[in-house]
C-alpha cells in the first residue's frame, strides 16, 4: 500500500540550501533593516493595553450603525483622538477607540461616562476595556521582559542540550523571528497589544521547535559521518528533515487559517501574526539558523563530545 505522499517524495531531496546563504543573509538583513526603519519612522500602533485609553465595542440594537454621525458625536466630546471602525458582517458592530486621557485613572473612567452619555440609548455595550496610564506602562515593561527572557532562555536551553555553536545559532534565529514579527506590526500598523506579545512568544517557540529538529539531525550526522565536510553535512541535515518541515508547516498552517477565518475579531491580530510567524520561523530555521553554523567551528565541539562519550564508555 503506497500512499500519495510516498509517491510525492520518494527520495531525499538534494537542494543546496547552504550555498544560497549569502542571498539569504541579504534577505534577512533587508527584513531587519526594514523593521528598524519602520519602527523609527512609523513606530507601532499600540493598543490600549500598552498606550492606555479606552476600547469600546458596541452593537446597535436596531439597524446598521450610522458611523458618520457617531463619529461626529464622539469627535466633539473633546476626548482627543477617537477612532471608529466598523467590523463584522451585519454592519451593526463598531469598535470605538479613545486615546488615553490626560490626568490620572479617574479621567479614563470619566471619559467612558461621557461616551455613554453622548451615544445615548440604542447601543449594546459588548466590550469595554479601560487601561490607565500606570498599568499600561507596567504591561509594556512585562511584555519586553517576557520576550527578552524567552529569547535568552531558549538560546540557553539549546546551548545546554547541544553545543555553544547551536545556542548561538538559535539565538540569532530567534532574534530574527522576533524582529521580523515586530516589523510586521510596525509596517502594517496592525494593533500591537498583549495578544501580540503572546503571538511573538508562540512564534519564537514554534520556530525554535523547527530549528531544534534540524539541529538535532546536524548533531546526529556529525557523529555518523566523521569525514563529511560541514557544508555537505548541513545540507544533508536540512534535506533529510525537509519532508517533516513541509508537513508540520502544513498542519500548523491549516489550524492558523482556521483561526484567522473563524476565530473572530478578538483573535484576528493574533492569527495574522501567527501566519506571518509561520513563514518567518520556517524561513529562519532553514536559511538563518542552519547556515550560520558554517561560520562556527562545528567539528571541535562534536569531537569533544565524542571523546567525552568515549571516556564514559570505558570501564
Amino acid at each position: 500500500m503506497s500512499s500519495f505522499y510516498a509517491r510525492l517524495i520518494a527520495r531525499t531531496p538534494k537542494f543546496d540550501f547552504v550555498g544560497k546563504r549569502i542571498f539569504a543573509f541579504i534577505v534577512t538583513g533587508c527584513i531587519v533593516a526594514a523593521t528598524f526603519g519602520s519602527i523609527a519612522i512609523k513606530g507601532f500602533n499600540f493598543g490600549i493595553d500598552f498606550a492606555g485609553g479606552l476600547l469600546i465595542e458596541v452593537q446597535t440594537t436596531d439597524g446598521p450603525a450610522k458611523i458618520g454621525p457617531m463619529r461626529d458625536i464622539l469627535g466633539g466630546l473633546g476626548l482627543g483622538e477617537v477612532s471608529l471602525q466598523e467590523f463584522g458582517a451585519t454592519g451593526r458592530d463598531v469598535m470605538i477607540r479613545v486615546q488615553r486621557q490626560e490626568g490620572d485613572e479617574k479621567a479614563q473612567l470619566a471619559a467612558l461616562t461621557k461616551v455613554k452619555e453622548a451615544l445615548g440609548a440604542g447601543y449594546d455595550y459588548r466590550r469595554v476595556e479601560i487601561v490607565g496610564p500606570k498599568v499600561g506602562e507596567e504591561l509594556k515593561q512585562d511584555g519586553i521582559l517576557a520576550v527578552g527572557l524567552a529569547v535568552l532562555a531558549i538560546a540557553a536551553y539549546v546551548w545546554f542540550r547541544f553545543e555553544w555553536q547551536f545556542g548561538a545559532g538559535a539565538l540569532i534565529a530567534t532574534f530574527h523571528d522576533v524582529i521580523a514579527t515586530f516589523g510586521l506590526f510596525s509596517v502594517t500598523g496592525l494593533e500591537f497589544n498583549l495578544t501580540s506579545v503572546a503571538a511573538i512568544l508562540t512564534i519564537a517557540g514554534y520556530s525554535i521547535n523547527d530549528t531544534v529538529v534540524i539541529y538535532d539531525r546536524v548533531r546526529e550526522n556529525l557523529r555518523k559521518y566523521k569525514a563529511m565536510p560541514v557544508y555537505d553535512l548541513l545540507n544533508l541535515a536540512v534535506n533529510e528533515t525537509l519532508a517533516r518541515t513541509f508537513l508540520t508547516v502544513a498542519t500548523v498552517f491549516i489550524t492558523v487559517v482556521a483561526l484567522l477565518v473563524f476565530g473572530g475579531e478578538v483573535l484576528h491580530g493574533f492569527s495574522v501574526a501567527m501566519l506571518w510567524g509561520l513563514i518567518v520561523g520556517t524561513y529562519s530555521s532553514v536559511f538563518v539558523a542552519l547556515p550560520v553554523l558554517i561560520y562556527f567551528n562545528l567539528r571541535s565541539g562534536a569531537d569533544r563530545e565524542d571523546e567525552e562519550q568515549g571516556t564514559e564508555a570505558l570501564p
Partner: peptide, 22 residues
C-alpha cells in the same frame, strides 16, 4: 523531547509575565 521542551520554555515565560487571558 528537545523540540517540545524549548517551546515549553517560551510557554512558561508567557505564563509568568502574561496577564489574564494571555
Amino acid at each position: 523531547l528537545d523540540a517540545n521542551l524549548t517551546t515549553l520554555v517560551a510557554a512558561a515565560l508567557l505564563f509568568q509575565f502574561g496577564s489574564g487571558p494571555i
